[in-house]
Design a protein around this nucleic acid. Structure first.
Lengths: 352, 352
DNA sequence: TATTTTTCTGTTAACGTTCACATACTTTTT
DNA sequence: AAAAAGTATGTGAACGTTAACAGAAAAATA
């Protein structure tokens, strides 16, 4: 609000001009309490004339409620995030809440900054869809302690007073790997984690589980391309990571016949590396991604991948949060794990 | 903020516990005014102990400033929007402002709702990056009238008291078309507008201008695929639109040898239609998109397109807005038009 | 007609913060 | 040693709104 040029109209400005008190104007604009038709009409005329808009700060301060909820996204450029934001907004709008979105890329510091920006503005609740990290989690626990309503999406985080919605990436990773095994592959690589760093990466654990279930060896040289999970730079895996990791896999003496990547961007990078080397997909190498981003049907060949039920995640998270906000008494923690779906396209086939 | 379970700590709670007044605590947490080291230490200890956080509503109400700026995006799933949000955030963060993003898809009604949500929360300024529409524009003019600082990005909108940043889509469209003309094409179609609806679509006007400059006829049957610009459903052009429009073009008696589409999504749809018909790109038909979305390098063949200087648009818009916010006196309107860049890839070539 | 209920409007205080001012004590300057 | 400047804290009011209460007039009921 620019205050330099023009002071904005307040309730009492309207009241003065209309010859009533602020309280009457308040009653008119909020449509509650008794107001005579005559007075209401007069007030509304002045409201229009003076171009009055209520001051949400004052209102929120008094009501101890802002009808606003916050969403923290880790990576706005990710189609997954866009879809999530949309689905959440659909619910919140419908239920009479505004949705403010904050971006927290790159670092835990920004996570904390986003939490603080939203709580400072006294949003009624927050949906957190960033990657888990030590500092951010600690701060999140503190905020919940302080009484802020929180729901996490796809995040490794447990607090008795916060709900959680996740996709079953463990099973998703299992399905993707099993699909390759079913096609006859025995040398299946993973791009986007290491045995060490992938401890909390569910889709990677699903990969390991599938190998073990079929008595296939877990070969460390086939597991490559670490996406750092340090507090300083969580960041999503990128195409570049996939490209470089694939380059490394291609020069191995006994190279893999199939690759499962941590996400579709990584898969796209890997595809480019494979094409560049003159090999064909899926004839020489099969590849499976994760996320089913819109681009996945336009890669060549179209990418086999695992789809997360993004919209349902968003809907549920929003419902959980609103329930938490609108319930006075302490409530039980809700946790929902949704199934992923394997989408088979042209990037996978039987090994040569 | 959940108030049911726990009332949040206020300045005077801290003050009481520390044995001082609110004013002293305020001085400590804001680091201004005189406070003895001893008192400061004691206060900080209590602040930590009681887990105090300032109430931004009360603060904003008193200061008449929230150090927050709002961004309204028309389509969050658009890579252009993501890039824009990032660049704007880079500036605002650096200058000490929070950035709250609102989405306004589908309708002018949502535009208005987003404006109102942000102004009600007394953001210091708003950057608008939605598509222009009658109702939304009217509301925007009113808000500017009321004193809200506003900057528009890539939007057809003029107000003496609002700045504007746009990409020179007219010249971008001209370049794209000229590129096709230079390759020897004479039958060049446009997908995503009609002569009537494209009046305000700069890239389309650039197309027309290029044709005229080379004395090529503007053939109405080559101009197809209207993306409705009604108040009810502005919405971005989609792949489907491109697909269907291309289908129509392909059955024309004398089909075009080149197509310029209003954006890359549309181009992707058109590419799919062409492939489906068995024709080859660029041998049989050349195609040029607009926006250079990340996917553009992964279409097959890679898409020739026009890149907008998105980051610079974001930076400039943010700078303009902060200048407007931080300047007390009335200031002159700023308008900046940035150049687009033609990115030539494999989807364009000489006609057969 | 007397009584109760409903309708209409106003008064006061509070939400949590900060600014302007006041007071008192300490240090420096003349 | 007196005056001036600097340091440290407190008081009161205000930012714009609304809930709770109160009082009076009008309408409905007994």
């Amino acid at each position: 609000m620019k205050t330099g040029l023009k002071k904005s109209t307040t309730l009492s400005d309207v009241a003065k001009t209309a010859g009533v008190t602020s309280m009457t104007v308040s009653r008119v604009v909020n449509q509650n309490g008794y107001v005579s038709d005559e007075t209401r009409e007069k007030v509304l005329r002045v409201v229009k004339e003076l171009n009055y808009r209520r001051n949400g700060l004052a209102r929120g301060l008094k009501l101890q409620r802002t009808d606003t909820i916050g969403l923290i996204l880790g990576d706005i450029a990710n189609p997954f995030a866009a879809e999530l934001a949309r689905s959440i907004r659909d619910i919140t709008t419908q239920r009479g809440y505004n949705l403010f979105i904050c971006i927290s890329e790159h670092s835990a510091k920004e996570d904390v900054a986003a939490f603080d920006a939203l709580t400072d503005h006294q949003v009624d609740g927050i949906i957190v869809a960033t990657r888990s990290n030590r500092i951010g989690d600690k701060h999140l626990h503190e905020m919940i302690e302080r009484g802020v309503s929180v729901v996490c999406i796809g995040r490794d985080f447990y607090n008795e007073n916060a709900d959680s919605v996740t996709a079953d990436a463990l099973h998703g990773g299992f399905q993707a790997t099993q699909h390759l095994i079913d096609l006859g592959h025995k040398k299946i690589a993973f791009i986007g984690a290491t045995l060490e760093s992938g401890k909390n990466l569910k889709r990677f654990q699903g990969y390991l589980k599938a190998l073990k279930a079929s008595n296939l060896p877990v070969e460390e040289r086939f597991i490559t391309g670490n996406s750092e999970t340090s507090d300083e730079a969580p960041g999503y895996s990128t195409e570049k990571l996939g490209y470089e990791a694939m380059k490394r896999l291609l020069v191995l003496p006994q190279r893999p016949t199939a690759v499962f990547t941590r996400n579709d961007f990584t898969a796209i990078g890997a595809i480019n590396a494979i094409k560049e080397s003159g090999l064909r997909i899926p004839n020489d190498i099969s590849i499976v991604g994760f996320d089913d981003i819109p681009t996945a049907i336009h890669t060549s060949p179209a990418l086999t991948t695992v789809r997360q039920p993004t919209r349902r995640e968003g809907f549920l998270a929003a419902e959980f949060l609103l329930r938490r906000i609108e319930t006075k008494d302490p409530i039980e923690r809700e946790e929902k794990i949704l199934e992923c779906e394997l989408i088979v396209r042209q990037s996978t086939g039987a090994p040569a």
